[in-house]
Design a protein around this nucleic acid. Sequence first.
DNA 1: TGACAAATAGCACGATCGGTCGTGCTATTT
DNA 2: AAATAGCACGACCGATCGTGCTATTTGTCA
Lengths: 212, 212
Amino acid sequence: MAAPDTRIRIVDQGLDLISRSGLAGVTLGGLAAEVGMSKSGLFAHFKSKDAVQIALLDRMAEVANRVVVAPAMAAPAGLARLRALVGNWIGWSDRAGLSGGCPVAAALFELDDLDGAVRAKVELMEGNWRGLLRGLVGEAVGRGEFRADVDADQFVFELCGVYLTHHASHRFLRDPQADGRARIAFEALIVRAQPTPQEWATAPDQTPGETP
Amino acid sequence: MAAPDTRIRIVDQGLDLISRSGLAGVTLGGLAAEVGMSKSGLFAHFKSKDAVQIALLDRMAEVANRVVVAPAMAAPAGLARLRALVGNWIGWSDRAGLSGGCPVAAALFELDDLDGAVRAKVELMEGNWRGLLRGLVGEAVGRGEFRADVDADQFVFELCGVYLTHHASHRFLRDPQADGRARIAFEALIVRAQPTPQEWATAPDQTPGETP
DNA sequence: TGACAAATAGCACGATCGGTCGTGCTATTT
DNA sequence: AAATAGCACGACCGATCGTGCTATTTGTCA
């Protein structure tokens, strides 16, 4: 079949472009110029601009899954896995080789008052992501690493705050200390969720074996 | 004299538009249509689009000062004033009557990889704002309401995270619990910065009288 | 009422937007 | 060798972008 790699090239270049310029910054002509082909030739691969943007978001999800989620899943379940995931999450766009920031983070503030297929896509992705985080927090609670009364939604709410403020500090303010500050904030979140020493004595009979 | 209120009308309408559509969403034609005048008539008041955007940001600073900062300054210095300020800050754009979100928050993610006069303006405003927050945190430290080893920059970093995640949850995800979650997160930040009961016994000889 | 300055509108410009159309090239199939 | 299908091209559409230049309206004061 020899499916041409053109579409892949487009999407890969587009992912970099979207990370630099945001959703609205991705224009058919601009992307075509970057890929080195004509606007109409590029357009023929998709059928609308929305389809282009959604394809870019899908590609982003793939990349994020590869460089953020998958490696973290090797860590033992519970808090260790949450730590691994967040460690891979903060600043992941740099690590993924993108020259810009996280497209979803930008989209959260770009599309807040609009709607349409692209917003729905971002909403879905953000929902999935928060669901994943919430699951890991619940796992840590189930294993007794976090207190039973920890509100997973609140934890995720605040964790997303750490991510967003890191993004703003790192990418907009260019603060070289952003990474360290995010790490400190995350550790503080963990400490707040952990059982107090007294509770340690009475708590965990449940130890769902999952790691060798 | 008799400077016509047209410019004021433009800037007021523009502030609402920018809160809904972000910086890039403010277009001369669109703003002119909203104000009810011709594009060139509007353009004559400013000399470039950048000037329009900067005027809108200036107006935002005025409004924010009126509805966020000024009322908080009535509170007694230190932690109480910080609480008042943050209470006014979270969700301030709703309270100010804007139909969209905080323009600066959006700009932080919109302009991260660009530069120019508008970015410089946002950078300045954000720097001033963080400076104000940092000052209040320092005040709380000086009065012994926060521990002496509290890192004000770290506190502001995390506080901005609370603001940003509230913005994303409230405006993008339309989570009705966003306000409450932000309040909880802020209170947790405070608790973490406060002296432990033991320290309370030994700590504060310094009590800079500023409130009756 | 007439003169003058400020404010607004009209109009046109080059560029770019998302999108369509017809055409040619290059493989593969027949 | 002929027919077909996929792919990319340049030209072009109407709309809108920011930005000038030129009238026309409007308000003020003599």
